Amino acid sequence: MHATTDTQLKPELTKLGRRLRALRNERGWTLEELARRTGISEAYLSRLESGDRQPSLAVLLNLAQTYGLTLPLLFEPALEAASQEHKATAGVIIRAKDAATKEGNGLFYTSLAGSLPTANLHPIRVKVPAERKQEQLYQHDGEEWLYVLSGKVVLALADEEYLLHPGDAAHFDASTPHRLLAKGERDAEILLVACATPRSLLKSYL
């Protein structure tokens, strides 16, 4: 990531770090406890809370799952407060103007999830820039389904790579190391739905 991008993102990373620290403190967890629950190192979590590390989408999904929140609620405490007032709401309409786009490890993602506190699905629109070069593979609990909207995407799953065209879809266990790259000179866009491990099942391992 370029220095200019670091500077541009610093205010957002600082805000996110404060939010993550507040969520952890609200639950009375130490960094050690959060590391145990997420499988993320204490050092990495500490840098996230200090605003010194840009999290990947996989890390954000992991944290949202651990805190029992959707991605929008992970970022915005005001949304969390609003969701508590509407617990009985069966569904929420997400207007295009209200869907904020975030950047993480070279991906631009727009969460399309509502503010339901018990939601287990995380629908996300993801733009994969053509210039993105990423060798690291990511993994987390749950499963992912994706659908290519435009451009061409190379999906790496462990040691295999698959070229996906518009209209193609993929469904896989998110604990399998995976990575997304655009193929060619054009950006790609996908619709991704991540499903966290059900909380009742997850708790049996904690």
Rank of each mutant, 00 (worst) to 15 (best):
A96C: 04
A113E: 06
Y44H: 05
A100P: 09
I190E: 02
L16Y: 09
S111E: 14
E135Q: 10
Q136I: 15
L157A: 13
P129R: 03
E160V: 08
A3G: 08
N62V: 11
A130K: 15
P77A: 14
G51N: 10
L206G: 05
S41L: 03
S150E: 07
V148D: 02
P166R: 15
W145E: 03
E161P: 09
P11I: 14
A194Q: 04
L181H: 15
R36S: 02
R21C: 14
H171C: 02
P198K: 15
T4P: 09
A81T: 13
R37H: 01
A174G: 08
T197V: 09
T110S: 06
R37F: 04
A99H: 00
Q8A: 15
G39R: 06
Q54N: 08
H178Y: 00
Y147V: 13
R24T: 03
R199E: 12
Y162D: 08
G106R: 10
L146D: 09
A78H: 11
S56Q: 04
S50W: 05
L116T: 01
P166C: 12
R53H: 15
A170Y: 00
D173Q: 01
S46H: 14
K183E: 09
E26T: 11
L107Y: 05
E76F: 13
P198F: 04
R19W: 11
